[in-house]
Computed example of a mutant assay.
Amino acid sequence: MTHSFVFRTVELDGEHLRIAIRPGTSPMPPLLVFNGIGANLELVFPFVQALAPDMEVIAFDVPGVGGSSTPLLPYRFSGLARRVARMLDYLGYGRVNVIGVSWGGALAQQFARDYPERCKKLILAATATGLFMLPGKPGVLWKMATPRRYIQPQYGARIAPDIYGGAFRHDANLALSFSSKIRSGGRRGYYLQLLAGFGWTSIHWLHRIRQPTLVLAGDDDPLVPLINMRLLTKLIPNAELHVLDDGHLFLVTQPTAVAPLINRFLAEETYRASIHAPLSEPQDEPA
């Protein structure tokens, strides 16, 4: 499955980011993927492979995850968005389309706000506004507060139905397969990701996001209840919502169902209202 990806490692400020690029020939901007908390880039490969074959895709391991180095100091979403912009500069990309999944959806919102000229379209999957979101059940959040499910795959497979919902409730092999692809970056990297989102919210500036936005949600999401995606759709001026019959990880469980939605959304062209020429020539102003 990885034969079509080109792997690179770039150094920024003494730290290394591991990147996978699927080259494409489409004239549209490449799709940049912001992954979920603790999730290494290999977990999105089946989804990427389901996308239009000519679409260029960029995925990377967040600092402290997978093959990227772990920072010495904590970071915030604003600082990480800045680093991503520098990563794109290094790789020679200008404008991109962006998809953010769960934790990565918060980073995607931050990137779209801070670098609007570099983000053409925005896709938010199973994510929320941060601090003022309606949270999942306390027991589910408690299990998410530790990277144990990534460090101990058997434990991760056992709790997957509770934290991910949807197809994971009915297919034990799905949880085992998902856990086998995880490449843990360790506890420190996970806790740095948690800390990055502590106190963060986008609720007071979502109205400034002008990019066409596709919001994707599962109707059985124990982590991010559906009402959060409805709120995102209401607050972002140019947003549309699509609800899937699944849980939190529908990009993993239904890549062939989600990919056509994204292909169609990214292929659509949006046109600004045109300003028509006046019926008569305007008179010159007096000198």
Rank of each mutant, 00 (worst) to 15 (best):
E56I: 08
D61L: 03
A81Q: 14
Y75E: 15
F45D: 06
E42P: 11
I21D: 00
L12Y: 08
A59S: 08
A112W: 13
P74S: 15
A85N: 14
L91M: 08
G79D: 13
R95C: 05
G66Y: 05
T25Y: 06
G36D: 04
R22P: 01
L88P: 03
P23M: 03
M55A: 05
S78E: 10
S26Y: 00
G79S: 12
V62P: 07
D61S: 04
L43F: 06
A108L: 09
G36S: 10
F34G: 09
S68K: 04
S102D: 09
L73R: 14
T9M: 07
G14S: 04
A50Y: 06
G92Q: 05
R83V: 13
G36M: 02
L12R: 12
L73A: 15
L107A: 12
A59E: 00
I99W: 00
N35C: 08
P30T: 00
L32P: 00
V65N: 12
R18V: 04
R76G: 15
F47H: 06
M87G: 03
F111I: 02
P74F: 14
P23I: 04
R86K: 14
A106C: 14
F111G: 01
G36I: 01
E56Y: 07
L72Q: 11
V57S: 00
I58F: 08
D13H: 08
E42K: 07
R18W: 11
E11Y: 07
G36Y: 04
E15W: 04
L91G: 02
L41Y: 05
V98T: 08
A20K: 01
L107T: 06
F45M: 10
V65L: 12
M55F: 07
L88M: 13
D13K: 10
Q49R: 03
T9N: 15
V62N: 12
L72C: 09
